[in-house]
Design a protein around this nucleic acid. Structure first.
Lengths: 188, 188
DNA sequence: TTATATATGGAGGCATCTTCCACTTAGCAA
DNA sequence: TTGCTAAGTGGAAGATGCCTCCATATATAA
């Protein structure tokens, strides 16, 4: 949409510092830490942080962008070697795991994904693409949308974070959902 | 557990005022309003509010208790006239709708349900009961827990509150989940 | 009436968010 | 090189909200 007006060199440097600091701090202490702390860690004034990232979601989305880019690419590669259903299952499972990397991100996953960061865009696009494939192949109910997927990922992420999340529990819940959207009569 | 030590008359009166104020304010402005505002509306000091309700969840749960009691009773009545699967579906759908009555309750639904308010207890018990029935009848996969239900309700509530929630969207998501836990081979 | 356990209000300390603006600086044009 | 200026900066300050604490007030039982 609005193409960026090109940052000054120092501003770009500070932006990177903020992102690196955010990544660290979010990992250590969850997505709800004080933004003052992020600024401090970055060695930058709080005003600078706000100028670059007007909302917490914007910062979260930006910090996540690289991670999400990799995820989307990996998913794409995997999808080429497997049937759409398995690909979708794997996508969902990994989306949850990525969401769980920052404690407390789950509740805002929807909001974060809607920020137009490259990583978020790629992740959404890839998810929609796989879903479409599975539906075209008649493997998944036609009335499922990508928003449904995000909703489910949120749910699973929430659930596994409150208790002591385990990979197997995630797999279990993913399984339930995949079973729910499966279109074949003999599912399970 | 710990039976209440019987409040003094004035304390009981204030407690009621706080609950009434909380109900009003939560309805008007969501579950995240400042507790100071609730106290002000109730014509009571903030200290009094904290003495009676040590956490926001405790207050939410208490304010909700009556509503949840009715819900649980209605659900119970309905369950007698229908098969467990429909009952479960209706339960889940209404749980989401009730959760959406206060904007922003969704995120703490799990925490709220765990507060030992009569309404919360009844709601949990009723949900667990219906689930059990459906499982005993072999209609629902045995590996589903009531926590799974709460988790799904939370997510659906979150998702439908961010966008412009519509009854039909809720119904759709509930449907997907119910289909997912359905145990019959020929589901759908 | 009095003693006392119970209850009260709200000031105060703390954390965080967010805005704003006087000052600084990168980068360009002369 | 030297200004000039638009872009950028830091952090103080004002708001808001959480929660604790305690001097004061009051219900109630004896």
């Amino acid at each position: 949409m609005t193409d960026e007006p090109a940052l000054r060199a120092d501003a770009r440097r500070n932006r990177e510092r903020i992102l690196a600091a955010a990544e660290e701090v979010f990992l250590e202490r969850g997505a709800a830490v004080s933004l003052d702390d992020v600024a401090k860690r970055a060695g930058v004034g709080i005003g600078t942080l706000y100028r670059r990232f007007p909302t917490r979601e914007a910062l979260l989305a930006a910090a996540y962008s690289a991670r999400f880019l990799k995820f989307a690419a990996a998913s794409r590669r995997r999808a080429e070697k497997s049937d759409p259903m398995s690909a979708l299952r794997a996508y969902l499972q990994e989306l949850v795991q990525h969401t769980n990397v920052y404690r407390g991100l789950a509740a805002s996953l929807g909001a974060v994904l809607q920020v137009g960061t490259p990583g978020c865009l790629a992740t959404s696009a890839e998810g929609a693409r796989i879903l479409q494939l599975a539906q075209t192949a008649g493997m998944v109910r036609a009335d499922i949308t990508f928003d449904d997927i995000v909703c489910v990922a949120t749910a699973i992420s929430l659930a596994t974070q409150q208790n002591g999340s385990s990979k197997s529990q995630i797999a279990h819940l993913v399984d339930v959902f995949v079973h729910g959207i499966d279109n074949s009569k003999a599912a399970r």
